[in-house]
Amino acid sequence: MDSLVVLVLCLSCLLLLSLWRQSSGRGKLPPGPTPLPVIGNILQIGIKDISKSLTNLSKVYGPVFTLYFGLKPIVVLHGYEAVKEALIDLGEEFSGRGIFPLAERANRGFGIVFSNGKKWKEIRRFSLMTLRNFGMGKRSIEDRVQEEARCLVEELRKTKASPCDPTFILGCAPCNVICSIIFHKRFDYKDQQFLNLMEKLNENIKILSSPWIQICNNFSPIIDYFPGTHNKLLKNVAFMKSYILEKVKEHQESMDMNNPQDFIDCFLMKMEKEKHNQPSEFTIESLENTAVDLFGAGTETTSTTLRYALLLLLKHPEVTAKVQEEIERVIGRNRSPCMQDRSHMPYTDAVVHEVQRYIDLLPTSLPHAVTCDIKFRNYLIPKGTTILISLTSVLHDNKEFPNPEMFDPHHFLDEGGNFKKSKYFMPFSAGKRICVGEALAGMELFLFLTSILQNFNLKSLVDPKNLDTTPVVNGFASVPPFYQLCFIPV
């Protein structure tokens, strides 16, 4: 009986604490739906499609509103004006990374994606500088992407125009580009180590996009005490870190300090320079996690976009025909596509942009946080508050993009057929937390897609009208449904 009384008292205290925290903070924060004790607004949000729920709530509470995930307040920004004001106009104040408990377990605050403060700034600055020195957006990395595009075309030829699921092959190409940047090595598509790495990356994007992960991140005790797919994700990350550590040891034994070959060499050189400046942010643990982040951000996002792009091109054969006509006119058949071609191919450029806009790969991006107490639109948001960005509300804005739910390359073309930029184009987020590999991803999408369409016609196994382009999961990332196609050599 005594234990029951204690339990009831504990629960009562928890409920009172929950109510007090919510009521004391709500006077400062933007308005929002009334949260339930302990669980907050979790029942009012469709976990399978958070973005749709945010759109519905914005119609009631406006472009800036507050939700509670458990006891934790989260300020939501919906629509271009609110997102721009926060991420661009007040970029420094909104540059923090929001709480992501599962990532905390995986990387302990290291790396480039989930770190904060001085650690994040130094690692991000170093990573950007190193990638630029190796030619991100310049010639040397373009050579690597072109080489991988040629290998991709050869792998597709091996399908002999038979029906195939493109998931694996389209994942190999961007993964190999990242391998060449980090390890100075590309792998054969049949290499077992490479296959294991690909498998872990593919599993992780599916797990991260599941409703279960949303629950884990908002009720963090689940991570330590409950079984579930989150444990598989943590094991996959541990596998990748151990693999990278092996490569780091190989580099330490063979590195030429006067001739760095890749990202690992550059990081080890930085560690050597910083060894007298303790404590340094440049450690082996930081290198492991930064490399894992580059793999995660640079492989599955690009391969998922490529997979979605081919599905949309199957669905819209008239678009595919126009792209192939432009390829034939500008590039021809006797040389590989290059980035200089893009400025002469406005329709193809528009298609690449429209694919990214339409699929809305990361509907709410990753959570941000404010780095200080900030007054925002007459609300006071306390330091450390998590900020949720609705990228969907920007990419699918119906004023900027008429009929935003329709796939239409003319969203990025003017009346004369010239490519038209849009400030609403934010597939990689915006501001200080914009994806480090934005330029690389854009290069890969253009070169891989043009190389495929230069060499193959795409054949659907069903009537294009019957192809479903609805994402199968739409949590962290929008993942396309399973499909097969035939690559018919031109």
Rank of each mutant, 00 (worst) to 15 (best):
L9W: 09
C10Q: 02
L11A: 10
S12Q: 04
C13M: 11
L15G: 06
W20H: 04
W20F: 15
Q22R: 15
Q22F: 11
G25P: 15
G25V: 15
G27F: 13
G32D: 00
L36C: 15
I39P: 01
G40F: 00
G40Q: 01
N41S: 06
L43Q: 08
Q44V: 11
I45D: 01
D49I: 00
S51R: 15
K52R: 13
K52C: 11
S53L: 07
L54G: 02
N56G: 13
S58N: 10
Y61M: 01
G62I: 01
V64A: 08
T66E: 00
L71C: 13
L71T: 14
K72E: 11
K72Q: 09
I74S: 04
V76T: 03
L77V: 13
H78Q: 08
A82G: 03
K84E: 09
K84Q: 07
E85P: 02
G91L: 04
G91S: 13
E92H: 08
F94M: 08
G96V: 10
I99D: 09
F100M: 15
L102K: 08
R108M: 07
G111L: 03
G111P: 10
G111F: 02
I112G: 09
F114R: 12
S115G: 13
G117Q: 08
G117F: 05
K118T: 10
K119N: 12
K119Y: 15
K121R: 13
E122K: 15
I123Q: 11
S127E: 05
L128P: 03
M129H: 04
M129A: 12
R132F: 09
R132N: 11
F134R: 15
R139S: 12
R139K: 10
R139M: 12
R139P: 14
I141F: 13
D143C: 14
V145L: 05
Q146K: 14
Q146P: 01
C151H: 09
E154C: 04
E155L: 04
L156G: 00
R157K: 15
K158E: 08
A161R: 06
T167F: 05
T167E: 07
F168P: 07
I169A: 07
L170T: 05
L170Q: 00
G171E: 15
C172Q: 09
P174R: 03
N176L: 00
V177A: 03
I182A: 02
R186P: 02
R186M: 02
D191Q: 05
Q192F: 10
F194A: 05
F194Q: 04
N196Q: 14
L197E: 00
M198L: 12
E199D: 14
L201R: 03
N204Y: 08
I207K: 05
L208D: 06
L208A: 11
P211L: 07
Q214P: 08
N217F: 07
N217Y: 09
S220L: 07
S220W: 15
Y225A: 11
F226D: 03
T229A: 11
H230S: 08
K232L: 08
L234G: 08
L234Q: 11
K235I: 06
N236G: 03
S242M: 07
S242C: 08
L245Q: 13
E246P: 03
K247V: 10
K247C: 09
P260W: 03
I264Y: 03
L268G: 04
M269G: 11
M271L: 07
E272Q: 13
E274W: 08
E274G: 11
N277M: 06
N277D: 08
Q278V: 09
E281V: 14
F282Y: 12
T283D: 14
I284A: 06
N289D: 13
N289H: 12
T290V: 13
A291Q: 01
V292C: 07
V292Y: 12
L294T: 01
F295I: 12
G296L: 14
G298P: 03
T299I: 12
E300D: 15
E300H: 12
T302R: 01
T302V: 08
S303Q: 10
T304V: 12
T304S: 10
T305A: 14
L306G: 00
R307T: 06
L313A: 04
L314V: 11
P317H: 09
V323Y: 03
V323G: 00
V323S: 04
I327C: 05
E328H: 12
R329F: 12
R329V: 13
G332S: 06
R333G: 12
R335W: 02
R335P: 03
C338S: 14
D341S: 01
Y347A: 01
H353T: 03
E354G: 01
E354I: 02
V355I: 13
Q356D: 03
R357G: 00
R357N: 01
R357P: 00
Y358A: 04
L361H: 08
S365F: 14
V370C: 09
T371E: 10
I374A: 11
K375V: 07
N378A: 04
Y379Q: 04
Y379C: 07
P382I: 04
I387R: 00
I387G: 00
I389R: 01
S390E: 02
L391S: 14
T392R: 12
T392G: 14
T392A: 13
L395C: 06
H396S: 09
H396G: 08
N398A: 12
K399W: 10
P402V: 11
P402C: 11
P404Q: 04
M406F: 15
F407T: 01
L413T: 03
N418E: 13
S422M: 05
S422V: 05
K423V: 12
S429I: 05
S429K: 05
G431E: 05
K432H: 15
G437P: 07
L440C: 02
L440E: 01
G442W: 03
E444F: 02
E444C: 00
F446G: 00
S451N: 15
N455G: 04
L458A: 01
K459R: 14
S460G: 07
D463K: 10
D463L: 09
D463N: 11
D463T: 10
T469R: 03
T470A: 15
N474K: 11
F476D: 05
V479S: 11
P481E: 02
Q484P: 04
L485H: 00
P489T: 02
V490S: 11
V490W: 09
